[in-house]
């Protein structure tokens, strides 16, 4: 099993301090949610872990090396004149290697397309995809090389209801089968409660809480994260659900 530990992570943009003293333990084999308000520093934390941003603190991997890590950025704009199939080959090659493609490599591309239900788009140009299709392709690109540590920045933000379910299920399955650490930045807390075993909550660059999802996502923490009054209740089927009552303070108009 793979594990990722963050020890006192800090990061700046120029002089501005964005992250400070972020410490958390993240286990592989399940999905971990990273939640927090806009501008809380979720993307920044991912960039710091992925090594795109320098800063203080230590990032330790167990059962994996830095090379096994894949980061899927938040923006999904891709304008290259490539087909979906080609873009997945490209992600598999990771920017290196010979010109020849082996049958195994092509097999891996095909397998990934099927896993994410994208086979019918294989021949389509990237520039001719819908927003949600592009996001799904982006997810497939991230996983085709079978990474052991995966950071996905809002992987479901453009997906329809059915797709959200399908993809989160596929991601959960991937984590279970490979034991990979998978951290997903998500805004939909009901999605988090349904699919993610663990949650890390970030506010203004600090980790407020991390651990089992239901222990972290209490009404009190949700109020501190988003300024929203809410209840967490079991639905008739027994699943925990978050119900929004309204903002804590009257919004200034």
């Amino acid at each position: 099993m793979v594990a990722l530990s963050l020890e006192h992570i800090g990061a700046n943009y120029g002089r501005r301090k964005i992250l400070s003293d972020a410490t958390a333990e993240i286990q592989g084999g399940t999905l971990t949610a990273l939640v927090g308000a806009n501008a809380a520093g979720k993307s920044t934390l991912f960039r710091r872990i992925a090594g795109h941003l320098r800063g203080t603190g230590h990032i330790r991997l167990q059962g994996a090396v830095a090379h096994d890590l894949r980061y899927m950025p938040q923006d999904t704009g891709m304008t290259a004149a490539l087909t979906v199939y080609e873009s997945i080959i490209l992600a598999l090659k990771q920017g290196g290697g010979g010109w020849r493609l082996s049958a195994t490599e092509l097999g891996a591309v095909d397998e990934t397309l099927r896993h994410f239900n994208l086979s019918h788009l294989a021949d389509q140009q990237l520039s001719e995809l819908s927003g949600g299709q592009r996001q799904a392709v982006s997810i497939a690109q991230t996983l085709v090389s079978r990474p052991k540590v995966v950071l996905m920045d809002e992987p479901t933000s453009a997906l329809d209801l059915n797709r959200q379910y399908e993809i989160l299920e596929a991601l959960r399955l991937y984590a279970e089968q490979t034991g990979a650490v998978m951290v997903l930045a998500l805004h939909d807390l009901n999605q988090v409660m349904r699919c993610c075993t663990a949650t890390v909550a970030l506010a203004e660059g600090r980790i407020l809480a991390s651990g089992a999802t239901l222990d972290v996502l209490t009404p009190d923490l949700i109020r501190r994260l988003y300024g929203i009054n809410s209840r967490v209740e079991r639905c008739s089927q027994g699943c925990p659900m978050m119900i929004v009552d309204g903002p804590t303070a009257q919004l200034a108009l």
Binding site: A50, H52, H67, R70, Y71, M72, P73, D75, G77, M78, T79, A80, A81, L82, S87, L90, A91, K93, Q94, G95, G96, G97, W99, Q141
Partner: peptide, 23 residues
């Protein structure tokens, strides 16, 4: 250029994506 063919192609997916691929 030919030796860097995959890396150059990757750049066209955007700087962030290419960096994420280790380019």
């Amino acid at each position: 250029f030919a030796r860097r063919a995959w890396a150059l192609t990757a750049i066209r997916l955007g700087e962030v994506r290419a960096t994420a691929m280790g380019v």
